Computed example of a mutant assay.
Amino acid sequence: MRLWGETSQETMPKAEEYQKKEHQLHPEIITQNQEISPGVFLISYQQKQDFIPGQVVKITLDPEIPPRIYSICSGNHEQEVRILFNIKEDGYLTPKLAASIPGDKIWVSQPYGSFLGTDKPAWWIATGTGIAPFYSMFQSGQFENKTLVHGARHLNQFYFEDDLDWSLGKNYIRCCSQEQSCDVFPGRVTDYLQTQNDLPKDQQYYLCGKALMVVEVRDLLIEKGVPYENIIAEIYF
Rank of each mutant, 00 (worst) to 15 (best):
G5P: 13
G5N: 15
T7Q: 14
S8D: 08
Q9C: 09
T11H: 09
K14W: 08
Q19G: 07
K20Q: 12
L25C: 06
E28V: 10
I29P: 00
I30K: 03
T31W: 01
N33P: 02
Q34N: 13
Q34Y: 09
I36M: 01
S37Q: 03
S37V: 01
P38H: 00
V40P: 00
S44E: 11
Q47A: 11
K48N: 14
I52E: 04
P53G: 06
V57I: 15
K58N: 13
K58W: 08
D62A: 07
P63E: 08
P63G: 07
E64C: 04
P67L: 02
R68G: 01
S71Q: 05
N76A: 11
Q79N: 14
Q79W: 02
R82G: 00
F85Q: 05
K88A: 07
D90I: 09
G91I: 02
L93W: 06
P95K: 05
K96N: 10
K96L: 12
A99W: 02
G103M: 11
G103K: 13
D104M: 06
D104H: 14
K105L: 11
P111K: 11
P111C: 13
G113T: 14
G113K: 15
S114Y: 14
S114G: 13
F115I: 13
F115Y: 14
G117R: 12
D119V: 12
K120L: 15
W123C: 08
I125Y: 10
A132E: 09
P133N: 10
Y135W: 09
Y135T: 01
Y135G: 02
